[in-house]
């Protein structure tokens, strides 16, 4: 996988020990994301999800911050892929590219770890929140200050955050715009672990390597079930649990495929 440089910032990617390590790199801007960086990040994640040599994904920032947000007015070129969906409104361009990146990361069929040092703000918090694991430096700061800039970010944090930390805490965070310390983020369950800043990169890497040794496809099914069932009623979810385990063992489907290939009517046994 090539290291990719795009626009005002860069997104670096490399694979080692079955871990795809993606690094955000926009010096002087605390790795704030623009459109080309978001597209590159989504592309690297999507490639990793198809790569048998990738069994866990690590996302971090270079230069002492994870991601300080975005850079309104300096978002770089609108990606050609979404040219038919470019639309403006009272809050600026519709967040089509932001949503594309966030949905790609959230749906990844690999475990995804966010490594949070320095600032994780706004769009950076959006990105961290859709990862499966959040590991932070003990001096990191997390928050969504966009309300203080009278910006409404339609990035889905209003869905994700209450489910991560409960509605009461999410309301405070989203509507006051206050950033919180790493210790507070650990206490309320927004991040899973803290490490001294100097040890963070190595600890996160070691953790990702342990994730990469787990049964990747089993884990992917568990992840997909959990995310889908956040939106289901109990009885529906219980049926879903059983239904996803049945298709592999239905013998008639093999006969169906054979019959189709041999251009004859299938002889089903009911098994």
């Amino acid at each position: 996988m090539p290291e990719t440089t795009t626009g005002a910032g860069a997104v670096h990617a490399r694979i080692a020990d079955s871990v795809l390590h993606i690094e955000l790199d926009r010096p002087g801007r605390r790795n704030a994301l623009d459109h080309p960086m978001m597209m590159a990040l989504a592309e690297r994640v999507a490639e990793g999800c198809e790569d048998p040599d990738v069994r866990a994904i690590l996302i971090s920032g270079r230069g002492g911050d994870f991601c300080g947000g975005d850079t309104p007015g300096e978002m770089g070129d609108w990606p050609d892929r979404f040219r038919h969906r470019r639309s403006g409104g009272p809050h600026g361009l519709a967040p089509v590219v932001e949503q594309h990146m966030l949905r790609t990361v959230r749906a990844a069929n690999r475990p995804v770890v966010a490594v949070l040092d320095g600032e994780t703000l706004g769009l950076g918090l959006d990105l961290a929140a859709v990862c499966d694991f959040r590991i932070a430096a003990d001096d990191a700061r997390l928050g969504d200050p966009r309300i203080l800039q009278a910006r409404h970010a339609a990035t889905g944090l209003t869905y994700v955050l209450p489910r991560l930390i409960g509605q009461s805490r999410a309301t405070w965070m989203l509507l006051t715009g206050e950033a919180m310390s790493a210790a507070e983020a650990l206490r309320i369950g927004l991040v899973h672990r803290l490490h001294p800043a100097a040890a963070l990169a190595e600890e996160a890497r070691a953790f990702a390597v342990t994730l990469a040794r787990l049964p990747t496809r089993s884990l992917a099914v568990k992840k997909e079930m959990t995310l889908a069932q956040l939106d289901m009623a109990f009885e529906t979810a219980m049926s879903h649990c059983l239904a996803v385990r049945q298709t592999n063992v239905i013998e008639d489907k093999d006969e169906g495929i054979r019959a189709w290939n041999e251009r004859r009517p299938p002889r089903f046994t009911g098994r």
Binding site: R163, V191, L211, K222, Q229, F234, C241
Partner: peptide, 27 residues
Amino acid sequence: GLWGCEGWSYKLPRLVGQTWVAPLTFT
């Protein structure tokens, strides 16, 4: 390489918040 299908995937995120689902169920 196995997973239960008795509904942890529905219950756990509602009991403890989604943050703790990943470490409890993936590892």
